[in-house]
């Protein structure tokens, strides 16, 4: 598993909001099952002193860090305040930040990610479902019922499509090491390259599934960067140019990043690309047979 384990103490920013409260409950239910620490503190400015599902809430990240051993965080604050939340956590010394928030302006994301990098911390997202390592830790909003433990890593730009793939894998008896949703925005912290670098160092992970979308060329960069066996799927082959397909990042700009040329480049790099999600489990089995 990567980015954290049972021992990881998690902080949630935006703890008292509807989303934050709901998912603190789910994350801690998962931690209880797995025997992990889960969410140990929450932060909402002005709401210090409260409790959410028994988790103490603080006004600032620094205050929470003083009382607890925290190494990761999950952010649910609204878009207008999310970049600041990332920077506050990076400055306070949190090393892994998962930003769930969607609709963050790109310029805010560029600043927050540059700031976090300067402070030596990693940002997963924004506009992502977070990550889940079955039997170990859940940081984010993924529906844990679909997952099973195993040795296939999954990296994806999308949420529900990831669940679809995980569901197919689990039904086919293929377990997962860590499933990471890296986010659907044009500017994200951890890209395919960064997550693959983590998977390379993880003894549990034997193969990786890359779930990409139209827009940019981060999938190809990732595929070229790793020695791990990979299967890929790219959504958006039917996406018309210059139309934003739900995700701000899922847009074919000036002919760049369209699915067909992306798939062609991946295949050229020797990566098998599934035409349908339902083909993925069989292709993963193929990888294991050939190595």
């Amino acid at each position: 598993m990567i980015y954290g384990d049972k021992k990881t103490g998690i902080l949630v920013q935006g703890a008292t909001g509807k989303q934050g409260e709901f998912h603190i409950g789910l994350m801690n239910a998962y931690a209880q099952q797995a025997g992990g620490r889960g969410v140990v503190a929450g932060v909402t400015p002005g709401k210090g002193g409260r409790e959410v599902h028994g988790v103490p809430v603080y006004n600032t990240v620094r205050e929470a860090m003083r009382d607890h051993d925290i190494s990761a965080s999950v952010i649910f604050v609204p878009a207008a305040a999310a970049a600041d939340a990332i920077m506050e956590e990076a400055h306070a010394g949190i090393r892994t930040i998962v930003a769930i928030t969607e609709h963050i302006p790109v310029h805010d994301a560029m600043k927050a990610i540059a700031y976090a990098k300067m402070e030596g911390c990693r940002v997963i997202g924004p506009n992502c479902p977070g990550l889940l390592s079955p039997g170990e830790v859940k940081m984010g909003i993924m529906p844990s019922g679909l997952f099973s433990r195993g040795n296939v890593g999954v990296i994806s730009r999308s949420g529900t499509l990831t669940y679809e793939v995980v569901d197919e894998l689990t039904r086919a008896g293929i377990g997962q090491s860590t499933v990471v949703g890296i986010g659907g925005d044009p500017v994200i912290g951890q890209t395919f390259v960064d997550v693959l670098e983590q998977f390379e160092k993880d003894p549990q992970t034997k193969a990786v599934i890359l779930i990409g979308e139209v827009g940019g060329n981060l999938e190809e960069e990732g595929a070229k960067s790793t020695s791990l066996p990979i299967v890929s799927y790219i959504a958006g082959i039917s996406a018309p140019p210059d139309k934003r397909m739900g995700h701000a990042g899922a847009i074919v700009e000036g002919g760049e990043g369209d699915a067909r040329s992306k798939i062609a480049r991946l295949k050229k790099a020797g990566v098998p690309v599934a035409a349908r999600v339902s083909e993925i489990p069989e292709m993963v089995r193929g990888l294991f047979r050939s190595c």
Partner: peptide, 12 residues
């Protein structure tokens, strides 16, 4: 659909 990726995959 729900979610951009799943909806796009449905179109594909």
């Amino acid at each position: 659909g729900n979610g951009a990726g799943l909806t796009m995959a449905t179109l594909d």
